[in-house]
Design a protein around this nucleic acid. Sequence first.
DNA 1: TTGAAAGCGGTACCAG
DNA 2: CTGGTACCGCTTTCAA
Lengths: 335, 335
Amino acid sequence: MAITIKDIADKAGLSPASVSRILTNRGRFNADTAKRVRELAESMGYLKNQSAADLSQKQSRVIGVLVPSEHTNFADEIIKGMRSKAYELNYELLIAFVDVNKEQQLQTVHSLLSRKVLAIVMLAVDIEIADPVFNLLTSTGVQLLSVSNQLNNEIPSISSDNYVMMHQIVDYLYEHGHEKIALIGASNPNSIVAKLRRQGFIDALSKHGIEHHPDFIWGTENAYQTGMDAIKHFGIPLPFTAAIGSADIISVGILNGAKDAQIDVPKDLSIITIDGTEIAQITRPILSAAKQDFQLMGQLAISALDEQELAPHAVFFTETKIVPSGTVTTLDKNN
Amino acid sequence: MAITIKDIADKAGLSPASVSRILTNRGRFNADTAKRVRELAESMGYLKNQSAADLSQKQSRVIGVLVPSEHTNFADEIIKGMRSKAYELNYELLIAFVDVNKEQQLQTVHSLLSRKVLAIVMLAVDIEIADPVFNLLTSTGVQLLSVSNQLNNEIPSISSDNYVMMHQIVDYLYEHGHEKIALIGASNPNSIVAKLRRQGFIDALSKHGIEHHPDFIWGTENAYQTGMDAIKHFGIPLPFTAAIGSADIISVGILNGAKDAQIDVPKDLSIITIDGTEIAQITRPILSAAKQDFQLMGQLAISALDEQELAPHAVFFTETKIVPSGTVTTLDKNN
DNA sequence: TTGAAAGCGGTACCAG
DNA sequence: CTGGTACCGCTTTCAA
């Protein structure tokens, strides 16, 4: 049997109540006895039983985090941001991976909820209102927050402004002489982010007087293969001069697909990737990127949860910026 | 206030005890009332308070997982393996990222321990016996298990047989005519795995009558930059014909470093990478790899914890295998 | 098969 | 500043 607060109390000739106060730094107590108690606890190897504390307080400082297990690598960066802020503000993160299996998802969410977490942060989780998981999530009234995904108005979110970001990207390509542009990997009809990107893409083009070519919006899966397949799908010569990859891994696929097809990047195809994580920087050439600030999203997530009741429709945006590297070339306008 | 077991009991005209038995499927109870109770629970939106349950049982089915936050990407695969097995055997995973900050490490481990996890799995965590974290970890008597890292005899482990793997690699290269071989990124003197790899490397070479060149064992950090720097460090022409990257990310660095220095891979330099995760397959050429079975390690970890008391010195090995791809060429022996 | 009651380890209120 | 004590929600004897 592990050592409890009562053991310490006995040894110190105090009551459990006092020891608790001291160890949690709450209420009043004598500084000297406090010191003594703390030393005693230390030397006895005392470890608080968090379950007991949680039970007693009916509120924990645990924030649950749902991470899709197909684990797009930016998740790591968001978590990093959350970790640093959580440490600072003394929250604990309970990270749970959810995969596609519905049954397992429910079980995972159940287990978070069972731990009486004070909030649940969803990382890039696409979820529909009709989903039983969504139901479960909302049924208990835990604070929810979606990061890096704009959901419906039911859940507050922190993300890039995907619509605006597409304008940045298109503007950038346009300035470099590109007018025939493809958007790869954002065709998922159920993803709100994908929808915003498509709309931003279309509007940005039309802002420059370019009518978009519907076929140039292609590819649903957020995967390497989507990029590879894109090249095969469009064939040679490619009907566009630039491609936007809707995630780094997709863009790497585009790049390799092009390479395999003897298409020179960036001479014959410019690529700009969305995300700009580490993986975009280990390619040759290095991928020009629209970089999202994932760490900041993570930090904001924790701060936001710490500070306020979040209105269901609250939306926070972090900046995105274009980071030029080696995959976008300037087209001669006379081409 | 959330719904409790007592609420259900009241509504069902039963005692909390019975409801508990039914909902946990323990002991005897009437099948019909059981059905009724379960439906009631469902409809009332009951969620077990796991803290209370844990407290009461003084034992949880939670397995804590320590993941280094510089999060070498194979960690994901191990976790995937653990998840599937955990789900199967009805364990919960509590994943905690640990970073280099000692203070934070201690706090993280504390928090795992506070939750009375029944075991702690350490993923590729290098830790020394003198480390206060190690002390804390061992002080409570939780079952420990190290995955993908061979530690000392104090902690059971599941990993590849790094010594044997180096023989596989060297044999493979030797069969392809390579005798001048470098080992990049395994020079960390404190890592047991690195030590085993160095030793295996040296012994395998000498088995083929090759005296190893100490300078060819180079690079400490498990990082992209290590690979890049290696090329610069050795200069052109490279004094070896093949390089072994001690992790995928290192190998990618070697590959890119070579590319940047106009060294043709594999014609002028063969590369074989250790790990063989996804990242090794999105390079051009694709990296030939000594692949470790991370998923299996994860599954074994959970099974092992489930089945038995693990002896402190227990060691499980999973197979490694050479997966040829595009970065190893056959040398003409007359060169 | 079911119920009463005694905890599990902390916390917090209220008295002292 | 400190102690007594009644919970928190669930599990688990032991009796009924």
